[in-house]
């Protein structure tokens, strides 16, 4: 990956501010994500990652600043948020024209490894499968920007690794800009092109992940953990 052109942006955020009552959660945040770029967002719990993502998704109004995006925006939440009463394909095709939606949904379900399950009900799925349907629902509309809010947090370790592989494949094929919120440093290193750390309502640092070399991973991991306020004695000296 990383073959995005730096000139075309999936989203550009300038001076974003979000507050709940008096409490300012996002305070003059700037951010740009390129088309096809996979960005992971780390930050302590409660630092405002979800708040940022909701503002980008248009679920909450910005109190100040601008958000410019090209193309549609799709979101995968921590919970799958499927409608239990709609068969899988209708969940995926939600909000789309029914005639074309059905075919597109079938293809999208095939892409996430659920071919032939389009008429099944969500309650018959495992957690990982349900999250894959949510992914299909997001990708079927070919979004310019894909927002993922800790989508793998509730999955078991093995399923999570499979999801990492799957999502990298899908992003390589569909080429949206991606913002993945996660609390897992290793997950961020494993799948992102670039990692952001959020602090005090801003993006504190932005580090590129050298995908080609394994060697740089150790120091990167230690650096990120340090930025997140965790100092691991051994790792710090790698």
């Amino acid at each position: 990956m990383g073959e995005f052109s730096p000139n075309s942006h999936a989203v550009v955020v300038r001076g974003l501010r979000r507050q709940y009552g008096e409490r300012v959660v996002i305070d003059g945040l700037d951010l740009a994500i390129g088309t096809g770029e996979f960005v992971a967002l780390l930050g302590e719990s409660g630092c405002g990652k979800t708040t940022l993502l909701r503002a980008l998704a248009g679920l909450d109004e910005a109190d100040d600043g601008t958000i410019e995006s090209t193309g549609e925006i799709a979101v995968v939440f921590q919970e799958h948020r499927l409608m239990a009463w709609l068969p899988l394909w209708e969940n995926v095709a939600l909000g789309m024209n029914t005639a074309t939606g059905r075919v597109l949904a079938q293809n999208a379900l095939g892409e996430v490894g659920l071919a032939g399950r389009e008429n099944d009900w969500p309650l018959n799925l495992s957690g990982g499968q349900a999250q894959r349907v949510a992914l299909a629902r997001a990708l079927v509309r070919e979004p310019g920007l894909l927002l993922l809010d800790e989508p793998f947090a509730a999955l078991d370790a093995l399923t999570r690794i499979k999801m990492h592989v799957l999502i990298r494949e899908l992003v390589a094929r569909h080429h949206p800009g991606v913002l993945l919120v996660t609390h897992d440093v290793d997950e961020a290193i494993a799948i992102a092109d670039r990692i952001l750390v959020m602090r005090s309502g801003k993006i504190a640092i932005s580090l590129d992940v050298a995908r080609e070399t394994e060697a740089g991973r150790g120091p990167l991991r230690a650096r990120l953990l340090h930025e997140l306020g965790v100092d691991v004695p051994d790792a710090a000296h790698v």
Partner: peptide
């Protein structure tokens, strides 16, 4: 209400 948010992000009428 979480499902209604899905309606919003998928642009459901």
């Amino acid at each position: 209400p979480k499902l209604l948010e899905v309606a919003k992000v998928t642009g459901l009428s």
